[in-house]
Deep mutational scan, measured.
Amino acid sequence: VSVELPAPSSWKKLFYPNKVGSVKKTEVVFVAPTGEEISNRKQLEQYLKSHPGNPAIAEFDWTTSG
């Protein structure tokens, strides 16, 4: 189950709350306009370098507050 949070234009930000008793931590995933899922800052940096014209990296908020 995921919750969609505010994201930069043409992107989606999905929040996957951890299940009770789960060892997996809460996860935030950005979905690029191409449909590619980005789950960490390093991936995001690589994606933005190879896909010019996207929002600046500073516009991506990895917190769950939206």
Rank of each mutant, 00 (worst) to 15 (best):
T64R: 08
A32R: 00
P8K: 05
N18R: 09
T64A: 14
P33D: 02
P33E: 02
H51M: 03
E59P: 01
P6G: 07
V23T: 14
D61F: 04
L5F: 09
Y47A: 00
G66P: 13
P8A: 04
S50P: 00
I38W: 00
P6E: 08
L48E: 00
T63C: 09
V3S: 07
W11C: 06
K19A: 14
H51R: 03
L44I: 01
Y47P: 00
I57S: 07
W11K: 05
F60V: 01
I57T: 05
V31G: 01
G66Y: 08
Q46G: 08
S22W: 08
K24I: 13
N54I: 03
N40H: 06
V29C: 06
N18V: 11
S39G: 09
P52S: 05
L48K: 01
V31D: 00
S2F: 15
T63Q: 08
S39P: 06
S10E: 12
V29A: 06
V28E: 01
P8W: 04
F15A: 09
A58R: 09
V20K: 12
K25A: 13
A56M: 08
E4M: 10
G53R: 05
E36Q: 07
S9N: 14
K25S: 12
A7G: 08
R41A: 10
K13Q: 02
N54A: 08
V29K: 07
P55I: 06
K19T: 12
T34L: 02
V3Q: 07
W11L: 04
K25H: 14
P17C: 15
V1K: 11
V29M: 08
L5R: 05
Q46I: 11
S22C: 11
Y16K: 08
G21C: 10
F60H: 01
N18W: 10
S50I: 09
Y47G: 00
K42N: 11
G35A: 02
A56F: 06
S2Q: 09
V1A: 11
G66T: 12
T63N: 11
L44E: 00
A58N: 12
D61H: 06
V20A: 12
K25M: 13
N40C: 07
E36C: 03
G53D: 08
P17N: 08
P52T: 06
K12H: 09
I38L: 08
P55G: 05
P33I: 03
F30W: 07
A58Y: 12
P33T: 02
G35L: 02
P6H: 08
E27W: 14
P52N: 04
A58K: 10
K49F: 10
E59S: 07
T63H: 08
F15I: 13
Q46Y: 09
L48H: 01
K24D: 14
P8E: 05
H51K: 03
K13S: 02
T64Y: 13
G66N: 12
G35S: 03
E4N: 08
V31E: 03
E37L: 15
E45S: 09
P55W: 10
F60D: 01
K24F: 11
G66D: 14
G66L: 11
L48A: 00
G53K: 05
P52A: 06
W11N: 04
V1P: 13
V29D: 01
G35V: 00
T34G: 06
P52H: 05
K12L: 09
D61W: 03
E45W: 10
S50D: 14
E4D: 07
W62C: 03
V23A: 15
S50Q: 11
S2M: 12
P55H: 06
F60L: 01
A7I: 04
T26I: 13
G21E: 07
Q46A: 13
K24H: 15
Y16G: 03
P55T: 03
Q43G: 06
H51G: 01
Y47K: 00
P33Q: 02
E27K: 15
P8I: 04
E59W: 05
G66K: 11
T34V: 00
T64V: 15
G53A: 05
K25L: 10
T26R: 11
K24M: 14
P55L: 05
P17K: 09
S22V: 11
V28Q: 01
T63E: 09
Q43Y: 05
V29G: 02
K42W: 13
S39Y: 15
L14N: 03
V31A: 02
V29L: 07
L44S: 00
V28S: 01
K12Y: 06
F15C: 11
G21V: 07
T63D: 10
A32L: 01
Q46S: 10
S2Y: 15
T26G: 15
Q46H: 09
T64N: 09
V28A: 04
N18A: 13
R41I: 15
L14W: 08
S65M: 10
D61Y: 04
S22N: 13
E27S: 14
A56W: 04
T26E: 13
V20E: 11
K19Y: 13
V23H: 15
L48Q: 00
K13D: 05
V29Q: 04
S39R: 15
N18P: 10
E36W: 02
P33K: 01
P6D: 08
F15Q: 06
S9D: 15
V31H: 04
V31M: 07
A32E: 00
W11V: 04
P33R: 02
S22K: 11
G35M: 03
Q43T: 08
P6T: 08
G35I: 00
V29R: 07
K42D: 14
S50K: 11
A56C: 08
V29F: 07
S9Y: 09
A56E: 11
L5C: 10
S9V: 12
K25N: 14
V1H: 13
E37C: 14
F15H: 07
R41M: 14
W11A: 03
V3P: 06
P17L: 13
V1N: 11
V1Y: 10
V28Y: 03
E36R: 03
N40Y: 04
K19V: 13
L5D: 04
A56L: 09
P55Y: 05
K13T: 03
V23E: 15
I57Y: 11
R41E: 11
L14G: 02
V23L: 14
W62Q: 01
H51I: 02
Q43F: 05
A7R: 03
V20T: 12
S9K: 15
F60W: 01
S9E: 15
P17I: 15
T26K: 10
P17S: 11
Y16E: 03
K42C: 14
K19W: 13
I38C: 04
V31I: 15
Y47E: 00
W62G: 01
L44Q: 00
S22E: 11
W11G: 03
S10N: 15
S50E: 13
E37R: 15
L44C: 02
P6Y: 07
I38S: 00
V20Q: 11
I38Q: 00
V23P: 13
P33Y: 02
H51Y: 06
Y47C: 00
P8T: 04
G35Y: 02
H51Q: 02
A7Y: 05
S10V: 04
D61Q: 06
S65F: 09
S50M: 12
Y16V: 09
N54R: 03
P33H: 02
E37I: 15
L14V: 09
G35E: 01
K12T: 10
